[in-house]
């Protein structure tokens, strides 16, 4: 399974397809204080991405894939949207 659920953590591996999104959403809906481990993830389908963006769970490990990590950091960082701080010399690609 590309997505593995433990009691309070969801672990992504390889490529999470669109079929995974429904289960992910259900799990996140019923699990409070959930955390996400993306370390082994290489890609996740847009459907999964938007579920994560809506749920904003804590990310325990970011993907090892640097390019994916950059995307996800912009999308999933908690302060996204409020901060337009130009001096935030966050990673550039």
């Amino acid at each position: 399974m590309p997505i593995e659920f433990t009691t309070d953590q969801v672990i992504f591996r390889d490529v999470a397809s669109v079929e995974e999104a429904e289960a992910l959403l259900e799990w996140l809906q019923k699990t409070s204080n959930s955390t996400v481990d993306l370390a082994a993830c290489t890609h996740l389908h847009t459907a999964n991405l938007q579920v994560l963006m809506a749920a904003r769970p804590a990310i325990t490990s970011w993907p090892e894939n640097i390019e994916l990590r950059a995307w996800l950091e912009v999308a999933l960082k908690p302060e996204l949207g409020e901060s337009l701080d130009g001096n935030d010399d966050s990673r550039s690609r």
Partner: peptide, 25 residues
Amino acid sequence: ILWGSTQPLERLPTLAELDTYSCVL
């Protein structure tokens, strides 16, 4: 790509209202 971001189209719906199969990004 120099830079990219993913944004919700409007406000993202809450988890309870989210439709997995409709792209809102």
